[in-house]
Simulated scan of single mutants.
Amino acid sequence: MGTAAASGYGDGTAPGAAGTAVATGHVDTPTGGPGVFYDLGDLTEGATIEISRADRRTAVFTVRAVELHDRKNFPSEKVYGSTGRPELRLITCGGRYVKGTGYQSNVVVYARLTAVT
Protein backbone atom coordinates (compact mmCIF):
# COMPACT_ATOMS: atom_id res chain seq x y z
CA MET A 1 0.00 0.00 0.00
CA GLY A 2 2.69 2.64 0.31
CA THR A 3 2.93 5.53 2.72
CA ALA A 4 -0.07 7.82 3.04
CA ALA A 5 -2.17 9.53 5.66
CA ALA A 6 -5.34 8.03 7.05
CA SER A 7 -7.68 9.38 9.69
CA GLY A 8 -7.82 7.89 13.18
CA TYR A 9 -10.39 8.56 15.85
CA GLY A 10 -8.86 11.30 18.03
CA ASP A 11 -10.55 10.19 21.24
CA GLY A 12 -9.98 6.50 20.52
CA THR A 13 -7.24 4.05 21.33
CA ALA A 14 -3.75 4.98 20.16
CA PRO A 15 -2.09 2.37 17.90
CA GLY A 16 -0.19 -0.07 20.09
CA ALA A 17 -2.13 0.68 23.29
CA ALA A 18 -4.44 -1.94 24.80
CA GLY A 19 -7.73 -1.82 22.95
CA THR A 20 -8.83 -1.37 19.36
CA ALA A 21 -7.27 1.47 17.35
CA VAL A 22 -9.28 2.46 14.27
CA ALA A 23 -8.21 4.32 11.13
CA THR A 24 -10.40 5.14 8.16
CA GLY A 25 -9.55 6.33 4.68
CA HIS A 26 -11.09 6.72 1.26
CA VAL A 27 -10.83 4.03 -1.40
CA ASP A 28 -11.01 6.69 -4.12
CA THR A 29 -11.22 10.46 -4.57
CA PRO A 30 -14.07 12.64 -5.84
CA THR A 31 -12.22 12.92 -9.15
CA GLY A 32 -11.97 9.13 -9.52
CA GLY A 33 -8.34 8.70 -8.53
CA PRO A 34 -7.10 6.23 -5.93
CA GLY A 35 -7.58 7.13 -2.28
CA VAL A 36 -5.29 6.39 0.65
CA PHE A 37 -6.86 2.93 1.15
CA TYR A 38 -7.28 2.07 -2.53
CA ASP A 39 -5.41 -1.25 -2.13
CA LEU A 40 -6.71 -2.09 1.36
CA GLY A 41 -8.78 -5.04 0.13
CA ASP A 42 -5.64 -6.57 -1.40
CA LEU A 43 -4.02 -7.14 2.01
CA THR A 44 -3.84 -10.77 3.08
CA GLU A 45 -3.46 -12.64 6.34
CA GLY A 46 0.12 -12.33 7.60
CA ALA A 47 0.82 -8.97 5.94
CA THR A 48 2.35 -6.33 8.22
CA ILE A 49 1.22 -2.75 8.78
CA GLU A 50 3.53 -0.18 10.36
CA ILE A 51 2.12 2.86 12.14
CA SER A 52 4.31 5.77 13.25
CA ARG A 53 3.29 6.80 16.75
CA ALA A 54 3.50 10.16 18.51
CA ASP A 55 6.34 8.81 20.70
CA ARG A 56 8.43 8.28 17.51
CA ARG A 57 8.21 4.52 17.84
CA THR A 58 6.60 2.29 15.23
CA ALA A 59 3.74 -0.07 16.06
CA VAL A 60 3.87 -3.16 13.85
CA PHE A 61 0.61 -5.01 13.31
CA THR A 62 0.05 -8.34 11.56
CA VAL A 63 -3.14 -8.82 9.54
CA ARG A 64 -5.29 -11.69 10.76
CA ALA A 65 -8.32 -11.13 8.47
CA VAL A 66 -9.73 -8.92 5.72
CA GLU A 67 -13.52 -8.86 5.44
CA LEU A 68 -16.19 -7.13 3.35
CA HIS A 69 -19.23 -6.08 5.41
CA ASP A 70 -22.53 -4.85 4.00
CA ARG A 71 -23.25 -1.31 5.24
CA LYS A 72 -26.80 -2.27 6.26
CA ASN A 73 -25.56 -5.11 8.49
CA PHE A 74 -22.26 -3.65 9.65
CA PRO A 75 -20.97 -5.58 12.72
CA SER A 76 -20.09 -2.57 14.88
CA GLU A 77 -19.24 -4.54 18.01
CA LYS A 78 -16.92 -6.88 16.09
CA VAL A 79 -15.17 -3.99 14.34
CA TYR A 80 -15.01 -1.37 17.11
CA GLY A 81 -15.24 -3.50 20.26
CA SER A 82 -12.15 -3.89 22.41
CA THR A 83 -10.53 -7.28 22.77
CA GLY A 84 -8.42 -6.06 25.69
CA ARG A 85 -5.21 -6.41 23.68
CA PRO A 86 -3.64 -3.99 21.18
CA GLU A 87 -5.44 -4.37 17.86
CA LEU A 88 -5.96 -2.31 14.73
CA ARG A 89 -8.89 -1.92 12.36
CA LEU A 90 -8.50 -0.22 8.98
CA ILE A 91 -11.75 0.66 7.23
CA THR A 92 -12.65 1.90 3.76
CA CYS A 93 -15.54 1.73 1.31
CA GLY A 94 -15.90 -1.30 -0.90
CA GLY A 95 -18.19 -3.63 -2.74
CA ARG A 96 -20.69 -2.48 -5.32
CA TYR A 97 -20.91 1.24 -6.12
CA VAL A 98 -24.38 2.73 -6.68
CA LYS A 99 -24.59 6.21 -8.15
CA GLY A 100 -26.29 8.53 -5.68
CA THR A 101 -25.78 6.33 -2.62
CA GLY A 102 -22.13 5.28 -2.96
CA TYR A 103 -20.44 2.05 -1.98
CA GLN A 104 -22.70 -0.58 -0.48
CA SER A 105 -20.08 -2.23 1.76
CA ASN A 106 -16.98 -1.58 3.83
CA VAL A 107 -13.63 -3.35 3.69
CA VAL A 108 -12.31 -3.99 7.20
CA VAL A 109 -8.79 -5.16 8.00
CA TYR A 110 -8.33 -6.83 11.39
CA ALA A 111 -4.77 -6.81 12.72
CA ARG A 112 -3.01 -7.37 16.05
CA LEU A 113 0.12 -5.80 17.48
CA THR A 114 3.18 -7.98 16.98
CA ALA A 115 6.03 -5.54 17.70
CA VAL A 116 6.97 -2.00 18.69
CA THR A 117 10.27 -0.72 17.32
Rank of each mutant, 00 (worst) to 15 (best):
V79S: 02
A115P: 05
P86Y: 01
A115F: 00
V66H: 01
V79M: 03
V36Q: 11
A65R: 15
L43P: 08
A21Q: 08
E87G: 10
K99M: 10
T44W: 00
A5I: 13
L113C: 06
L90C: 04
T13R: 12
A6K: 01
L88G: 11
V108Y: 07
G81N: 02
A14Q: 15
Y38A: 07
L68T: 13
C93V: 04
T48D: 06
K99P: 11
A23F: 15
T29R: 08
G102S: 06
A115N: 10
S82A: 14
S76N: 13
L113F: 01
L40R: 04
Y80L: 12
S82G: 13
C93R: 04
E67F: 11
H26L: 09
D70Y: 11
R56I: 00
G32Y: 00
K72Y: 13
T58K: 13
P75G: 02
A14F: 12
V60F: 00
S105A: 15
R64N: 13
G12I: 13
T3W: 11
Y80R: 10
Y9N: 13
Y103I: 11
T24K: 10
F74H: 04
A59D: 06
T114I: 15
I91G: 15
V108T: 09
R53N: 11
V22R: 05
G81A: 02
T114A: 11
D11C: 10
V36T: 14
R89Q: 06
V98W: 09
T58Y: 03
A59W: 00
G16C: 08
D55G: 02
V60G: 07
T101H: 07
G81I: 01
K78D: 03
T92M: 09
L40P: 05
P75Y: 02
G81F: 00
N73F: 05
V98T: 13
G8E: 15
T101K: 09
V116W: 01
T92K: 07
R112D: 15
P75H: 04
H26K: 09
G16T: 11
G95M: 05
G102R: 08
F74P: 04
L40M: 12
H26A: 14
G35K: 02
Y103Q: 06
